[in-house]
Design a protein around this nucleic acid. Structure first.
Length: 573
RNA sequence: UCCCCGGUCGUCUAAUGGUAGGACAGCGGCCUUUGGAGCCGUGAAUCGGAGUUCGAAUCUCUGCCGGGGAGCCA
């Protein structure tokens, strides 16, 4: 069987125009950074990357690639209490899988701890920072409110010498967690709360995943991020909208320090219907066992999406299609699905699998006989070639493809009706066998030997073509069918998001029958099961015992007709 | 209540003072050895009010609506 496809490099597929790109274009025009474009992707390693990060990755790497620039991968690891090496590893793996190449080496905010410290000392010397003894509670109270300014800390006027001494001792671990902070002297009366003497350093006697126990004071995001950008020579520091209010502080630190000044640009983060993209809540889903880990195929994490069977190309195309703006919007999940189908339609080989088998006996087909039927692997791609599929007297078809009492417009198999078996023969149903409970256990058909391959010499047509698997040759498999993890468009708005988990988000089918070509696949092998959808071999696959995930179903116009017929007052036409 | 940012088809996005366009979704049809794919067609929008202008989605004012902001999180 064909191996799982590799991850082709992300080609600088033209990034559609957006306001960030316009800014860069303008800066190039005015030679603001002497022609340089240098972006960065700065995740905090406190969880797995999700599809929202993919948007940021595609933006940052895509823009730099388009203008011959560079993109750094930088871990924003300034909070040792939440960050772990496992997350670092997964992030590196995800970015690579998405198809992007960062500028070596990988950077870490923790690489700059010494420099950041020295700059803090410089600010103390210049009277721009002070050690504050207020407790967290006191700081909160003195900060003021949204409508009123705050009051200055009584420690704001400490001498430079005392500040220097205290800060040194903070660094040396002489004080307990939370007992003191280093704060910037900005403006307690500012309308922008971020400017009300923000904390630069806090005391945290915690082990850091990279610096170990070397430090017991750690810089805050605002004090670390802009300077990290500056050190790396970033030109455009692209982040999400909630940092808009932080930009004045970003600019302030850099101006006070008198160092190279990148510009921060904010864009709207991704929201998806039926999807939760809060790292905190995602972590809870994993920790509390609501899903089978960070890479559960129902998760919006890149690891989960990958395991589900999505391709990097599909994800990149999606990210390009949604655009970038400053509007708070929500993308319909259907657009994401459209992009996987579009990509997989071109490249996924077609095979036959029966998920809910119904036994079919071809009464007039010789017992013990087997034929090898020729099947086209991909009608969209002639180079995919053909394969042989065994045909015999007893087959499985999909339960959904047979109706004893067919509704109007159902043109699959039913008593007295004739259909085509894909790449096989025309068959006609003659009788139905039921058990004592009235359940159909098998059906009996006759086939027309003249229709071998699927065409009738007399030119007669059939309405439907259905898929099948020869019982004697079938490979048993488990197939996992997914629906959205949440039962409503906006689970974020719910009071209790756990209560919105869709009970039907995972359905495990254990009695599936696959054509023999599917008997020995590698995890991540992707294909289409004819008429059903795109599927991907799961990592739980064992030799001879495949496990498949349904990536996405095919568009199903019959399901639409049926649904419409269900609606009272709107009968199928 | 104070500050910041937004508001264009159902959804996302373009038009940067000069014909409101695209994608997805919807609907109708054609085609078909996947009720798949493909093709063709179609309905659908500038938050309201004033102003500037020959001309406004775009500029100004104002109102309304939505998002974000009071971590020693990022």
């Amino acid at each position: 069987m064909t191996p799982p496809d590799s991850t082709p490099e992300a080609t600088p597929a033209p990034v559609p125009s957006n306001f960030v790109r316009d800014i860069i274009l303008d800066d190039l025009q005015t030679n603001k950074y002497s022609g340089r474009v240098h972006t960065r992707f700065p995740p905090e390693p406190n969880g797995y990357l999700h599809i929202g990060h993919a948007k940021s990755i595609c933006l940052n790497f895509g823009l730099a690639a388009e203008f011959g620039g560079k993109t750094n991968l930088r871990f924003d690891d300034t909070n040792p209490e939440k960050e772990e090496q496992e997350y670092v590893d997964s992030i590196i793996d995800n970015v690579k899988w998405l198809g992007f190449q960062w500028e070596e080496p990988i950077h870490y905010a923790s690489d700059y701890f010494q420099q950041l410290h020295d700059w803090a000392v410089q600010m103390i010397r210049e009277g721009k920072a002070f050690v504050c003894d207020l407790t967290a509670e006191e700081v909160r109270k003195s900060r003021g409110t949204l409508t009123e300014g705050g009051t200055e800390s009584p420690y704001r006027t400490r001498s430079v010498e005392e500040n220097l001494d205290l800060f040194e001792r903070m660094k040396n671990g002489e004080f307990p967690d939370g007992s003191r902070t280093l704060r910037a002297k900005v403006d307690m009366a500012s309308k922008n709360l971020n400017m009300r003497d923000p904390v630069m350093y806090r005391i945290l006697n915690a082990e850091h995943h990279r610096t170990g126990n070397k430090w017991c004071i750690y810089p805050m995001y605002d004090y670390a991020h802009g300077q990290s950008d500056s050190i790396e020579g970033i030109t455009h520091s692209i982040c999400t909208l909630e940092f808009e209010d932080h930009r004045p502080l970003y600019d302030w630190y850099i101006d006070q320090l008198g160092i190279y000044h990148p510009q921060q640009i904010e864009f709207d983060r991704l929201n998806l219907t039926y999807t939760m993209l809060s790292k905190r809540k995602l972590l809870q889903l994993v920790k509390d066992g609501h899903v089978r880990g960070w890479d559960d195929p129902r998760m919006p994490t890149l690891s989960g999406i990958r395991r589900r069977g999505y391709t990097p190309e599909a994800l990149r195309n999606f990210c390009n299609a949604i655009g970038v703006s400053k509007t708070n919007g929500t993308i319909e999940i259907g657009l994401l699905e459209h992009h996987v189908r579009e990509d997989l339609n071109k490249r996924a080989p077609r095979l036959m699998a029966v998920l809910k088998p119904l036994r079919v006996v071809i009464d007039n087909y010789p017992e013990g006989q087997t034929e090898e039927m020729d099947a086209v692997n991909n009608p969209e791609d002639a180079s995919a070639g053909t394969r042989k599929v065994p045909f015999s007297r007893v087959l499985y078809i999909e339960q959904d493809d047979f109706r004893e009492d067919p509704p109007k417009q159902f043109y699959r198999l039913s008593p007295g009706k004739e259909v085509r078996l894909r790449w096989g023969y025309f068959i006609t149903c003659n009788s139905v066998v039921k058990d004592e409970k009235g359940e159909i256990t098998e059906i009996h058909c006759t086939y027309d030997p003249a229709t071998r391959g699927g065409n009738a010499p007399d030119g007669r047509k059939v309405k439907a073509t259905i898929h099948w698997v020869s019982a004697a040759h079938a490979v048993d498999a488990e197939v996992r069918i997914y629906e959205t993890l949440f039962d409503r468009e906006n689970p974020n708005a719910a009071e209790d998001f756990l209560a919105c988990i869709n009970p039907k988000s995972l359905e495990v089918l254990t009695d599936c029958k696959l054509e023999p070509a599917l008997g020995n696949v590698e995890p991540e092998f992707r294909c289409q099961f004819e008429r059903l959808g795109y599927f991907c071999a799961d990592k739980d696959t064992a030799p001879g015992k495949p496990v498949f995930n349904r990536t996405v179903a095919l568009r199903d116009s019959w399901a639409k007709i049926e649904k419409r017929a269900d609606k009272p007052g709107k009968p199928a036409k």
